[in-house]
Design a binder for these strands. Structure first.
Lengths: 348, 348
DNA sequence: TTGTAGGCGTTATCAG
DNA sequence: CTGATAACGCCTACAA
């Protein structure tokens, strides 16, 4: 850690106190255009309520003065801020990167700014952050929320809220439909000669982990493949490494994990133990996070369109902001199997 | 894409129009506490200017009413919003993930909310986003900005601005000091028998890429290693793949790349061509992004503390917001070599 | 179509 | 130490 010398420090920008020259207001424009401030306000917010002529005059004046609305002044009477909030459980987790990206992209496409916060996996922190945000934003996206359904409903009754990766009755949700992807995966595995499969589960409280396990069971029933569930200590690369011995002990020749991180750790450990992937054991991850194709062999995984989730959730919110009702049931987005090198025919 | 049925749609939250019951204000508290609204304001903002007794009364009343300040109303007279803005060139780029995380973390630790925007690598978009944000936030962080020094200085003269990954005279900057890490890398490579090294450069406009190439040259001079510079088409995995033939043609037995993505792509391509890493060629990346250790062998890389950069930039900003001057020169953070499997002794 | 006036919730100034 | 009162910049009935 080098620290900077302290000579000739950068000066703090000139403060704009009460009486000083500040950014131009609608009053300045009004003066320049020779009209009343309220006319300026109308011209600049709803381009219909003013004559074409004065409209132009005002717009020119605004341009000339390089005018920008003061969002706070506008928010005060209207309550709208042109921002949407996003709370993620863990900024550290790559799964959320895509969600953030998706939300930011479709938000900014509609001229909304994204405000970000993290709950650090704590329901309490999450609630606090949510409450604080709710005051500042027009709508809120909760990605994999940890707090009670009840609390979420309460928030949703205040301002539009959209939830990702969890279904909550009465609240707009965007949820990947895992069945399709899982079904594809199990079919592919079965076709490659696998008859015994293990599912490495995620955190017990995870709504999604349960859904995925159910999906695996259903698909395995259908394709006549045996399925066992294994527990992981944590849904990380490390957790994946740790579960390797259980996988081996289970006798399964194919594994589907709760997420890609687990799959990557598992594969690393298995390979370190001398196993050939996929010749001796096939590994299928979940989500298709950034980096899933960095491994050797590249990871086969069930892609969960996280970016789309973020994007859809934002779109949902913006629609509600336009006054539309939210969707009746959860919005489901498809998952799909992405076959790469870590799964294949069993060479036995 | 499944879409939801539209029966029993989630209703839009009750709007809070003009006259309806809204959240409690300091007037409500004042009434309940039997004091003047201005006293409430004082008690709640600066806990010094009011008698201990009334202070308590007011706090209790606020508690009871579940009062929360209206950020907009507060921002109007003061101009402060308790938010900092962060503009990144590309949300897609994992390099920025850590920066975002760092900024959010230290920001929220000091009760500041992070507002995020992306410039999509366009100087124009960046400037627009910056301008828009500057109206809404207390300070702004520019990560790897693409616009002119001049424009940035202009922004910085308006509100506190901190820049990451670039040095701009007169503007607070946080920049990884690449020399230490590069020096460690070249020394390690030299010690392992490498005598000819290639540097795969990043985008021509990248300030950082030039710095890194300079660092490589200096270190190679010192350790008596030959150095050639190779160009990449783009700083991605794909770009890394494409540069593989040039690397081979260069005769170098060790490579340092502008970033990890290039290194990963290069390694994949080299391995596909039958080269043994690191026996026949050593590869060293730059940054240590998420996933750098997913590869086989895991990538040796010069870690650039991106998270710390984000964190330091945020801290800088917050300090300036407290009225402190910015640092005199650029704040330098250390880089360090992280030795993993992709570099090692040359087996010739 | 445009001007007038009042208010949004808070802070800041000035008396008392 | 506390109470009145005027901004802050914009929006929106209401009146002209």
């Amino acid at each position: 850690m080098t620290d900077a010398m302290n000579a000739g420090a950068v000066a703090f920008p000139t403060k704009r106190g009460r009486g000083e020259k500040s950014s131009p207001t609608i009053y300045d424009i009004a003066k320049l255009a020779g009209v009343n401030p309220s006319t300026v306000s109308r011209a600049l917010s709803k381009p219909g309520r003013v004559s074409a002529k004065t409209q132009k005059i005002i717009e020119d004046a605004a341009e000339q003065l390089n005018y920008q609305v003061n969002p706070f002044a506008r928010a005060l009477p209207t309550g709208r801020t042109q921002t949407i909030g996003l709370i993620v459980a863990d900024i550290t987790n790559p799964t959320f990167f895509d969600i953030i990206r998706g939300a930011e992209t479709t938000g900014s496409a509609r001229d909304y700014t994204l405000v970000l916060a993290e709950s650090a996996e704590s329901p309490e922190t999450e609630l606090i952050a949510a409450r604080r945000m709710l005051g500042t934003v027009d709508g809120l996206i909760l990605a994999s929320p940890r707090m009670d359904d009840e609390k979420i409903r309460a928030l949703a009754s205040d301002k539009p809220v959209a939830v990702i990766n969890r279904e909550i009755e009465g609240v707009p949700c965007v949820v990947p439909d895992v069945n399709k992807g899982i079904s594809q995966a199990v079919r592919s595995l079965a076709a490659n000669g696998h008859q015994q499969l293990a599912y490495v589960a995620g955190p017990p409280q995870s709504w999604m982990s349960s859904r995925r396990w159910e999906g695996v069971q259903t698909a395995c029933d259908w394709y006549k493949v045996g399925a066992v569930r294994l527990e992981s200590s944590k849904p990380t690369v490390d957790g994946g490494r740790q579960v390797a011995r259980d996988v081996l002990a289970s006798g399964a020749t194919a594994v589907i994990t709760y997420n890609d991180l687990l799959a990557i750790g598992l594969m690393q450990e298995l390979q370190a133990a001398g196993m050939q992937v996929p010749d001796q054991i096939s590994i299928v991850g979940f989500d298709d996070i950034f980096g899933a194709d960095f491994t050797t062999p590249a990871l086969t995984t069930i892609r969960s369109p996280l970016g789309e989730c973020g994007s859809r959730a934002a779109a949902l919110l913006l629609d509600m902001l336009l006054g539309h009702d939210g969707p009746a049931g959860p919005v489901r987005v498809d998952t799909e199997l992405v076959v790469r090198g870590s799964s294949g025919r069993l060479i036995a």
